[in-house]
Amino acid sequence: MNQELIVTNPSNINYIDPRVKLIHTLIAGILLFVVRSNEGVLLNVAFMIVVLVFLGLYGCVLRLITYTGVLFLLTKFLSYFTDGPAALIGVTVYIFLKFAPVLGIYYMMTKSISASELVNALERIRLPRSITITLAVTLRFMPTIGQEMKIIRDSMKIRNIPFNLWSVLKAPIMMMEFVLVPLMMRFVKVAEELAAAAVVRGIEKSGRRGSMFDVRFRKQDFIYLLIVILYAIFLYNFEMGVII
């Protein structure tokens, strides 16, 4: 998740409540299975581009356009071949293209919502504490796993234990043990320390948690949601028209 806090002022017109974005994510997931035609996929991506521009994520817009453009041209090219390995590649590329709108959703959820905002939103939709606290910890540790793996890999190298494709294929279970055991050992310890640090900061207090964000629905949230729903209905009808 985003490690910078979202500095956007909630009174700004492009501040959309995370709960609304969650609903958008759900709708986008359903649309993934509604859209069959290439035109539909492109429309879907176009809509995501509009959303990302609205949210001010211009860098992501560029990446999304590039990704979609390259894959679209590839599918067009590959559709001339229907046998041999080209067909296999064709299927792969097609599936990746199908997921292009999802890339937009992924950018929206990770770049425009901070981890603590997301957890707060999930709390507001009455998800139990057990889920929200666990999820908060998961989001906190996801970015560190890469670093920890790198340290373990370095220390394996020093100990003359090579870690590469060949060694993994040769002794997969041993390699699994070498990588996982130090990682798990360390995280068991970290878990205990972190839990203690949370307890001394009052996490065991029951009842509604406070939030540094002023969480409530605003006018723009309803408008945004309405647009998303209207778009979904339009796309459904469009697809029906194409297929039949």
């Binding site: 606290i133 666990t134 989001l139 996801m142 990682l183 798990m184 972190l194």
Partner: peptide, 16 residues
Amino acid sequence: IKDFVLMGIFSAIIFA
């Protein structure tokens, strides 16, 4: 809370 933190950390490894 001990359990939540433990499950959270290990979910992070699993997800990664």
